[in-house]
Structure formats: C-alpha cells, structure tokens
Amino acid sequence: MKLQKNTRLALYSVLEFAADPARHIAASSIAERYDVSPHHLAKVLSELARAGVVESVRGVGGGYRFAANARRLTLLDVIQLFEDFDGRDERREGGDDTPVGRALATVLEEVDEMARATFATITLATMLRIVERHRK
C-alpha cells in the first residue's frame, strides 16, 4: 500500500493542524518538519482549504488552522481529496479480459475493499491517538 506524495503530505498536514486546532501553523513549519518543498506543500494546503478542512489565517503569525471535526473526518475523506480511492480503476490494460486478468482483478479488489474499510473507519481523532502511541 502506497499513497501518492500529495496525499501523504495532506495527511501529515491535517494531523498537525488537528493536533492543536486553535493554533495557526505556518506552512513553512510543516514543510521543514516533513522535509518537503514549501511550494509543493502550498498546493496541498490550498486544496485542503478549498475543501474546508483547514482555513488560512492572514497577518502576523498567520498560516493555517484546522477547520473540520476531527471526530468525524476520516483518513479516507482526506485521501479522496487527492486520489481516487473509492472507485474501480477503469483504465484498461493488456490481459484484463483474460481469465488470469479477471482473477487478478478479483484479488486486487479484495485488497482495495479492506484498505477502504480501514481508511474509512479511522477518524483524525483516532489517528492522533495512534500518533501518541508512536511517541512513546
């Protein structure tokens, strides 16, 4: 299981904001912590703001802050802002219509179903508890 770079960046950012919802966090601070390009991160934060997950705060000490409900927003909600995780991949590849191709698709769909069920049932609040466990 591998998430796209933007998706991982979005999850890192959202969890930073949700951990302290009242605090404005500068994008540069997140870029530094996760060793990513500020320019790349800006695009991700802009998309999160457009979706109402975070809101930008202008002025001195500005940045972004959390604007969603951490007990309701799931990992899947965030992931789906950046990649299509809920639908079948409609791209056709050579071999798809062979018995082996169809069998492989069945197995891959089983894996995807489990991944979706996992991401859809871990809220940001739950994820923050898991993060805490990894600090110890």
């Binding site: 007990r71 069920a117 809220t123």
Partner: peptide
C-alpha cells in the same frame, strides 16, 4: 462487517487495530 463503519469507527476510537 467492513460496511459497518459506525461501529468499526467506534472500536477504532477505542484503540482496536486489525
């Protein structure tokens, strides 16, 4: 059921993992 997202989320919130 993996479709029972309400109760799955509850158990997850209590610290349950796969």
């Amino acid at each position: 059921s993996r479709d029972n997202r309400l109760i799955l989320s509850f158990f997850r919130s209590q610290g349950m993992m796969a």
